[in-house]
Amino acid sequence: MSAGGVGARDRLSRARRRLPGVSPAAVLWLTAVWVLLWGSLDVLNVVGGVLVALVVLVLFPLPRVDLRLRLRPLAFTILVVRFLADLVRASVEVAWLAVRPGPVSRGVVMDLELASDDAFLQTLTAEMVSLVPGSVVIDLEPGTRLLTLHALGVRTRAQAERVRHKVRAQEARVLRALHPDPEALLDPRRRRHTPGAEVTG
């Protein structure tokens, strides 16, 4: 029994070395997607799903993402609930701006600097910012952490400041939900390297 287990593990690790991009979780997820797309759970779909998942993962290997995340359930719930509420509010607002009589509104292009260096968290923030009120992401440069976005209905600097504040709050919610040490980035006294901070006056 134990010898068989060791043998199986050995074979598994050898297969791993030969197929570095194929992770069991990815196979499971792609198989689940395949079965859901066919809409019925039977042997043929599951076997076909596993085969398709393996072919996809071997032919289109993804770059390895180094995820150093810590999920905090409470903060994550806040993030999701707040996001859904924001999504509804944004949709109703933009829908009203589209159909209301009178002149249509314009917006401005603005940019701001994100707090996080992590590409995954930056992406998540940018995706969410695109779906919440007032902003659509245009560009994100991971190196400089500069997020360029378009703000709808903004005319004055104070309004732009408000949009910037909202985006920061969105990023803070993402960081509090998933970053291992959010306060290191969010607490101004603990931020380690702040480009531009030494430039005063």
């Binding site: 949709s91 607002e93 701006l97 589209a98 695109s130 779906l131 009120p133 659509v136 378009h150």
Partner: peptide, 20 residues
Amino acid sequence: GLLRFPDLLTRMHAGTKPQV
């Protein structure tokens, strides 16, 4: 919104939020 908004970026607002 896609028809009425004046430029590309304002149209992206209409194309993302109410649509989703």
